[in-house]
Computed example of a mutant assay.
Amino acid sequence: MDERRATVLRAVVESFIESAQPVGSAAVLEMTRLDVSPATVRNDLAALEADGYLAQPHTSAGRVPTEAGYRCFVDGLGPGSLDSAEVQQVRAFFAHAQGQISELLSDTSRLLSDLTEYAAMVVAHSHDRDTIRSAQLVDLGGGRLLVVLVMSSGAVERTYVDVYSSPEMVAAAQGPATGAASAVLHEALTGRARSRRLDVRATGDAATDALVDAALSALAADEPATGDLYVGGTAKITGQFEAVSSLRSVLSVLEEQLMVVTLLRSLVDRGLSVAIGSETGMQPLAECSVVVAPYEVDGETVGSVSLLGPTRMDYPKALAAVHTVSRRLSASLGDGDGAPAAASAARSAED
């Protein structure tokens, strides 16, 4: 389309996002200050409607954007940015973030929702693509053992080891063999892919080898999950949809973790930063848009942060928030070497 019609379309989208009301030619002229007559703008609106970018709810009403109109608008957006207060809010959050990876991701979803007033979702992809950064066998007392794996994504896996089946195993777990087995596991597993079958060469010490074998068996039985989902600000979208049925459909999707994780992973793999309506591939989200960005550790995508809102969402703000938070989260997860996370995980299990 020519530059003037692109300006008219942008004005309609921006006005509808702000007001949720159909936009007429007078409003377009006031917003754009185009040096043309109202009749010319009306002709442009009609042409944009004929091309599928706008729709008219009923005769004599103004126009509203279609999916194609939103897509054209989004494709023409620049990178966008948060205001200085919001940037400081994000910096302060990650400067003081601490605790388990699950707590960080859950808090990050709430931060993103607070910035935008949309529902926010943070996904930690399953660990089958990760490598092991640190492995530790922890004696919890009373013959209870825990394997703690810190992954390259910063995620921590905890797997309990069953040593109750044999008095000899219980005795080994309470002796120095636990420390030796922990050292063997750390040396043998660090840098290996979690998805591979984990095996370790025998040391020749019966007690140590028995504990190592028990730990490996427990890890083999504890398959990595599809992915963890953290949702923040669900209540914030309740006022964003006029039809109760639409809201009910959206909330039902958010309750299905596997469905959401699969959707977001698909969008990231397809290289989409914004999916509008039918582009999500999910009928319950036909009136929604999703803005998503991956976060990385050591250059590898390990999850995603995203926003879910109505198709008339504030795309510039949403894109700026998602990309700012994803970059900060990547930097935060890439700082540590894994040891503090393992120690924290062990203390949590002991509690």
Rank of each mutant, 00 (worst) to 15 (best):
Q98M: 11
Q98D: 12
Q98P: 05
Q98W: 11
Q100L: 13
Q100V: 09
I101S: 10
E103T: 13
L104S: 02
L104I: 11
D107K: 14
S109E: 05
S109I: 11
R110L: 14
L111H: 01
S113I: 03
D114H: 14
D114I: 06
L115M: 09
L115C: 07
L115F: 09
L115G: 00
T116K: 08
E117P: 00
E117L: 12
A119W: 06
V122T: 13
V123I: 13
A124E: 12
H125C: 06
H125W: 12
S126A: 14
D128M: 12
D128V: 15
R129S: 13
R129N: 12
D130L: 07
T131S: 14
T131E: 13
R133G: 13
R133M: 11
A135L: 08
A135V: 07
Q136E: 15
L137H: 07
V138G: 02
L140N: 07
L140E: 10
G141Y: 01
G142T: 05
G142H: 11
R144G: 02
R144T: 07
L145F: 10
L145T: 01
L149A: 02
M151I: 04
S152F: 05
S153V: 11
G154T: 06
G154D: 06
G154F: 02
R158A: 12
R158V: 10
T159N: 09
Y160N: 12
V161N: 05
V163R: 06
V163F: 05
V163E: 02
S166G: 06
E168G: 03
M169R: 13
A172G: 00
A172N: 00
A173M: 03
Q174D: 15
Q174T: 13
Q174R: 14
G175I: 00
A177H: 05
A177Q: 00
T178L: 08
G179C: 10
G179W: 11
G179H: 13
A180R: 15
S182W: 00
V184C: 04
L185A: 06
L185H: 01
A188G: 09
L189E: 04
G191H: 02
G191T: 08
R192P: 07
A193T: 03
A193D: 07
R194H: 02
S195C: 10
S195R: 14
R197E: 15
L198F: 03
L198D: 00
L198T: 04
D199Y: 04
D199R: 11
D199L: 12
V200F: 08
V200I: 12
D205P: 07
D205C: 05
T208H: 01
D209R: 01
L211W: 02
L211I: 02
L211H: 00
V212P: 01
D213A: 13
A214S: 11
A215G: 05
A215D: 00
L216I: 07
S217I: 03
S217K: 13
S217G: 15
